[in-house]
Nucleic acid binder design. Sequence first.
DNA 1: CATGAATGAGGATTCATTCAT
DNA 2: AATGAATGAATCCTCATTCAT
Lengths: 222, 222, 222, 222
Amino acid sequence: MSYMRSAERQRHILDSAKKVFAERGFHAANVSHICAEAGIGRGTLYLYFRNKKSVFEAILRETLARVRALIDSQRPLELPPPETLRRRDVVAWSSRKLHAILQAVFEDERTLRILLREAGGLDVDIERVLGEIDDGLIRVIAEDLAAAQRAGIVRDIDARVQATLMVGGIEKLALAALRSDEPVDLRALAREVARFHATGSIADRVRDDADSDPGRDHGTDP
Amino acid sequence: MSYMRSAERQRHILDSAKKVFAERGFHAANVSHICAEAGIGRGTLYLYFRNKKSVFEAILRETLARVRALIDSQRPLELPPPETLRRRDVVAWSSRKLHAILQAVFEDERTLRILLREAGGLDVDIERVLGEIDDGLIRVIAEDLAAAQRAGIVRDIDARVQATLMVGGIEKLALAALRSDEPVDLRALAREVARFHATGSIADRVRDDADSDPGRDHGTDP
Amino acid sequence: MSYMRSAERQRHILDSAKKVFAERGFHAANVSHICAEAGIGRGTLYLYFRNKKSVFEAILRETLARVRALIDSQRPLELPPPETLRRRDVVAWSSRKLHAILQAVFEDERTLRILLREAGGLDVDIERVLGEIDDGLIRVIAEDLAAAQRAGIVRDIDARVQATLMVGGIEKLALAALRSDEPVDLRALAREVARFHATGSIADRVRDDADSDPGRDHGTDP
Amino acid sequence: MSYMRSAERQRHILDSAKKVFAERGFHAANVSHICAEAGIGRGTLYLYFRNKKSVFEAILRETLARVRALIDSQRPLELPPPETLRRRDVVAWSSRKLHAILQAVFEDERTLRILLREAGGLDVDIERVLGEIDDGLIRVIAEDLAAAQRAGIVRDIDARVQATLMVGGIEKLALAALRSDEPVDLRALAREVARFHATGSIADRVRDDADSDPGRDHGTDP
DNA sequence: CATGAATGAGGATTCATTCAT
DNA sequence: AATGAATGAATCCTCATTCAT
């Protein structure tokens, strides 16, 4: 491969590496695989990255950077009074918001695959970055939830826990899709999660807690 | 190490391996580490297992076996009519149920750690087992949800998706705990998840979808 | 190669390595060369030594150990009064003494070759060991010289400098021999050096410094 | 780096290389280090030298050239009759002569360091040059010694062996100085060696070999 | 002439697995 | 059955050298 400007080439290597890491995982991916994919000599990679690990880290850091950009760009939401909204509006809005966030973070399916499959067992530096990505993503969602709480749209629950549950749920759905080699439709996932989390699963026929009849006390384990 | 009958010894190796895998992850764990932990010679391991991978697989298969046992032992739930229940009863019941399941599957923290951190990047056989565990766990929960739906206690939503979200959420919470080296309290996690999923997050002040004012339709993306 | 007891095998590897290092020098000697010479697999070497460098260091340390043993075994010499000796007796005695020392240190020609050819450019740890060997060898000789001084057999000169000169001289002669692929005859070298250092090179016809005519002072540089 | 004529630049590279080689030794010195020191691009070095080895060789050959110049410029010494000299005159003269030679050969401390530390373990071509330098240096000194012998100032000993011993001694002293990071004072070294070699170390109280009393036989260890 | 991006041969080292004892 | 010494395939990385610009 002929000359290529430095930044361009680094980008190219990163993309090739992303592909290889997504397909094989960190350990099964050899430096040789990456270089072959990038169409470069094995030594060339080391002009742009300190070692294999740092290529991987660079990929993760790009994602982390996107997450941070998201955090930085976040403005306190301007929300209408709850009385003017219907539940389906909230779900739709929340779904769109979620989708935007997911799209920004999981840019492409390869990134998604890498993030979902390399949960750990790697180097400690790498685990930290993975943790920060998780953390940032959860925080972004939690902040929107908190804003919605202040606006009276969302119940007064622990926003961070709620956000963690949403992220975990989404990732699990995505992982299932990846496992069956279906393409992952982030928009659909976002919609699904938004709906579930908004509505709750208990049927209306169940009585409200405030209801008079105390009945027998639940909650003791069998 | 003194005399030990074959089955006993295999058990012992498995436990030692579980400890080592939980601490270091599959790749960083050497056969030497495992044998040292088990107090046996390196050759001995190969009398009981075909290779390193199959030790790991055996650990996962034990978990899978527990999941399957759970599936097999599952009886269609006998549930009271929804009108006799209050929401908090449902949450409490669901929380207990969930906890029982999680406890059965994630036996001990080591297993949990292994399952959460080795999401992939490993061998294809191993990934399949991981997938089956996930699948089974989700199915068990989904079936209970379906039963609750039939009993009119749970809304008519996609039980499998709901179960997936719950599992994903729980695991994400657990992972966060593991990352900060806190012990994982499965009961607390189960309670949290049960509550969130039961109730939903939209505040009561938001109008019902059935409400008269049609307004313009929000939220359906083109 | 079949089983061999640990100490024996380490010895065997060390000998093979000594041969290879002597022939090719540290850098040109590959681990593969050493293992091929020893008739062992490449991994086996690492059961006995941490790495290539430490094999080399072990060889040097053996020599250092011999030097130290020499130092420890050194007893203050019992020497006859100088008046009972003739110069040739002193030379003969000194030559034998020197030879014994050289033989103890430079055990075999391989060791000699290694020590003479790897003067430096290597790792800092290794250079230190080389320095200590040099130092010890010089010290042993210097101590004998000092004893001879106390006995009035040797002039009152700086014993350490004298010893350094002797060692340097011997090594240079040996190196010249090695370069022309002659076998090194340590006994002959010792004799030569002993003679030169004993007698001095100025002819008798040169006047003694004590002689009357003071003349102008030659030789002290400004 | 600004414009520089070919010869000048080659000179500049050589000087930079000398510095780097002296500091790090041949193997630890990278082409990159040299080029960085010289302030040139890595490719440029190859316009002036065939490869890394030939840079090193060029440095050695410069020294060899100086040695040869010394040989060529050597005129048979005009020496006064020994009876007109005192021993201290001889030492002083010999010391100055030696110093002049050493200075011419070991031009600067860097050269000295390179020559002393890279005794071997390198390429065969390089070893030959090193051998020739040694050889030439010894020959120059030997020839002066021979002249002094002819003039009756120096005893009738093997001049070449004597010269080798002197060179070896000097180099060992120099090496010790280098090891302790002291600057090497060639003049002092020359003086020391001249003195030792002139005088010899046996005390006057030891009887002359010519003495009548046959005494006991020599050569048996005490 | 000068550059430095690109290259890939070469070498050290690790570690799962085998097998003689 | 148990061992652990021996193995060598596998892989990362360095760095002298080339060559397109």
